[in-house]
Design a protein around this nucleic acid. Structure first.
Length: 256
DNA sequence: GCGACAG
DNA sequence: ATCTTGTCGC
């Protein structure tokens, strides 16, 4: 198998993307805006969404865009949409949104047209929100462009604004006693950009939660914990499982 | 030159 | 993101 060198991202495009993030960043709402967010048990919350994209192994541009809506607090599937898409933007760390957002917005649009009453009241996004180089990750991008409350949940720590994954970070992880415990991810500026959360008792590796849009960090962390049966919150996990299942069925692995 | 690099 | 089997445990 011949290896393919990753094509360098056009610096001109990256500059354009940076200014776009800077512009949209101003529209992020970092506070709770919904009544259910103020409730101790999230009374009034009935539908939580999850989005994800899964890829075919050797293909850089074909992917299955997935949107799921689960009931709350039962976390049962209410809606599912798997849709093959052709990506145009390359993956560049810090600019994930330009690669994925268009297709996630399309999925939300299809839902709005076909089953408007099932529109989620909050969407869990596979990736960071404010915990980002310019405080505008995928969860913020999707939140601002859709107008929906969004929570960013990353499975791996991104070293940004002075946040490091050093021995200190490791010791803080070791100090998390049970599901729901967390510690802040503080930028050099002093601002708390997100929190490392032990999402459930059985999981020791934390997930990194940050504000996407229209929700406070404290609420985002509390809600994420309440949606975790496994390490990854159920909406994102279901979106991941179902999108990969779709690819397995429609694009079976080829031998030779 | 070396390390980092959400998905 | 994807490459990858079995294995240990509930």
């Amino acid at each position: 198998m011949m290896t393919q060198m990753p094509s360098p991202p056009p610096e001109e495009l990256v500059k354009q993307w940076e200014s776009e993030q800077k512009r949209l960043r101003q529209q992020v709402v970092e506070e709770d805006t919904e009544d259910w967010q103020r409730s101790p048990d999230f009374s009034g919350l009935e539908r939580v969404g999850g989005v994800d994209l899964s890829f075919i192994k050797g293909d850089e541009v074909s992917a299955c865009a997935q949107l799921v809506v689960l009931s709350y607090p039962d976390l049962k599937i209410l809606y599912e949409d798997s849709h093959m898409v052709t990506l145009t933007a390359p993956y560049v760390s810090g600019f994930l949104a330009f690669r994925e957002t268009p297709f996630l917005l399309e999925a939300l649009q299809r839902l709005k047209i076909s089953q408007p009453t099932l529109m989620p009241q909050v969407v869990f996004v596979d990736g960071n929100g404010l915990f980002h180089y310019r405080e505008f990750g995928l969860a913020c991008h999707l939140g601002v462009l859709s107008g929906l409350p969004c929570v960013g949940v990353a499975k791996n720590l991104l070293q940004v604004q002075g946040v490091l994954k050093d021995e200190e970070h490791q010791s803080q992880i070791a100090a998390l006693q049970k599901g729901g415990d967390s510690f802040p991810l503080t930028a050099a500026s002093g601002k708390v950009l997100g929190k490392a959360l032990r999402s459930c008792d059985k999981s020791f590796k934390p997930v990194y939660v940050s504000v996407g849009h229209k929700i406070s960090l404290g609420t985002a962390v509390r809600l994420t914990h309440s949606c975790c049966r496994h390490r990854v919150p159920e909406p994102i996990r279901q979106a991941d499982v179902r999108s990969r299942e779709y690819l397995r069925i429609h694009f079976p692995a080829t031998d030779t």
